[in-house]
Design a protein around this nucleic acid. Structure first.
Length: 241
DNA sequence: ATATCGATTATCT
DNA sequence: GATAATCGATATG
């Protein structure tokens, strides 16, 4: 069971894929305009093994197969002229997707523990990208919780699903083997980016998180006042008694 | 409430 | 051999 969450987003019925031209631009522009858009996992990979007790009805494993979440925090990486970018040293086997056509998933593994998701930007040959740092879950929260191996006991716990680049990748079952190089502009794909008409509202710009090179460049973009932005919260969400 | 630290591996020097 | 676009657990005020 997942209790009601503090949300300022509505789930719209219609989500249309973002087209490739959107990504064929400067990553700073793409990052800004991706705020408020939606990340979609077409079908949750894991399936609930519901074992109903005697006389009980099987659980709701068939519903909520599609995962959706609103993009609330991103960072821009500028390609070879950005010391903090994976593309800084040029083309390698690991970062090849960054140099390919725009709108494709670049997934990398970090700290021996976590995957992180980017989308390639700029025309082919230029290696700009946008890193996804936090999402606001909209649908499929049960499957996300299962993928994250956590239980949701209150609104504050919902934040732990997708608030952070490693967390959101785990919630969406994103791995390098499965998703690196995938086209994110097609709703027929396993993972894609969509627009449901949500107005982004006020945007804050800050330095990027967790890097040692070019630490003061202002390339992190967040939705102001959105509780799902990563990092520590000054005031906790007051759960209803 | 903030601070520190260990986990664990692909990638690069 | 060192480091990394992180997270969660533990310790402490």
């Amino acid at each position: 069971m997942i209790p009601g969450r503090m949300s300022n987003s509505q789930t719209s019925a219609q989500i249309r894929p973002v087209d490739r031209a959107f990504f064929a631009r400067d990553p700073r522009r793409v990052a800004r305009e991706l705020l408020g858009k939606v990340l979609v996992r077409r079908e949750a990979v894991r399936q609930e093994a519901v074992q109903p007790g005697v006389g009980q009805i099987a659980g709701k494993r068939a519903s909520n197969r599609r995962l959706t979440a609103r993009i609330v925090e991103v960072e821009a990486y500028l390609g070879q002229e950005d010391p903090a970018a994976h593309a800084a040293a040029g083309l390698t086997a690991r970062n090849a997707v960054l140099f390919g056509p725009p709108g494709h998933a670049y997934v990398y593994f970090i700290y021996g523990n976590h995957y992180c998701l980017n989308v390639s930007c700029e025309p082919e040959g230029q290696a700009g990208s946008v890193l996804f740092r936090a999402l606001e879950p909209l649908s499929g929260l049960e499957a996300m919780a299962q993928a994250r191996s956590i239980e949701i006991h209150g609104p504050g716990d919902v934040r732990k699903l997708t608030s952070g680049p490693g967390r959101l990748a785990e919630a969406f079952d994103i791995t390098r083997a499965r998703d690196n190089g995938c086209d994110l502009t097609s709703a027929a794909g396993a993972l894609w980016l969509g627009d449901d008409g949500y107005p982004a509202g006020r945007i804050l710009v800050t330095p990027r998180v967790g890097i040692t090179k070019a630490p003061d460049w202002l390339l992190r973009f967040v939705l102001a006042d959105n509780p799902f932005v990563s990092g520590k919260r000054m005031s906790r969400i007051t759960a209803a008694a």
